[in-house]
Amino acid sequence: MDVKDIIKPENLVYEKPGMLTANTMHYCPGCSHGVVHKLIAEIIEDLGIQEKTIGVAPVGCSVFAYNYIDIDWQEAAHGRAPALATGISRTNPDKIVFTYQGDGDLASIGTAEIMHACNRGENFAVIFINNGIYGMTGGQMAPTTLLGQVTATTPYGRDAERNGYPLKITELIAQLPGTSYVTRQSVHTPAAIRRCKKAITKAFEAAMDKKGTSFVEVVSTCNMNWKMTPVQANQWMEENMFPFYPPGDIKDGSKADPASFKQN
């Protein structure tokens, strides 16, 4: 059978989701952002919520997310996406709101905003891309950079005495009473991407059902700033990031019952 006989519309099994625009992404070759954008586009299409979804984009590489996913977007100041999402979700309770943030945005300058939004149990989903480095500005050390990892500002590797310890922000957020679903995923293999899609779907459904904040960390690569090929970066992530940031659900339930907080 010739290839030309297979390539027919009736045999189609996978194509670009209609929610993704025709713009070429500005991300570097092999960047995990593209995969997560595609998953979000597929999920919004599957749930049929294009008209009522509002995304809040951060400062970072994904600042141009509004160019690629065909929904309504708001651009937040650096780290303030959860504060903006709080306002949008409270004033538009019929909309589904999500933030899309990187580790320099969420775990560094925006730590206060994400902590308090999750503590209040605001009804939105958070997609957190953790690649352990500041990608957009040229590969400086982020709070999530691993000990010993070489970056532009830690040329001899991150040292705990000098630079402090890596921040496991997802574990911190899982302890907050306002969160209903906290998970850590990755997008380096087809199986991991399918699991990640299920997790993000669950997070969006939690936001639709007003269950409290749902938080999905995606352990990602930044091959350009790690100075590796995309394939090497995925291997490096498996060998070095996963022991410290193990994938899996951290919290899967509902937000805390106010009755359990009664003071005598």
Binding site: K8, N11, L12, E15, K16, T24, C31, H33, G34, T189
Partner: peptide, 15 residues
Amino acid sequence: CAIVCPDTCITVYRV
């Protein structure tokens, strides 16, 4: 291949 493609430039057909 299409699922891992960050730029979603692969279309798949099966028969």
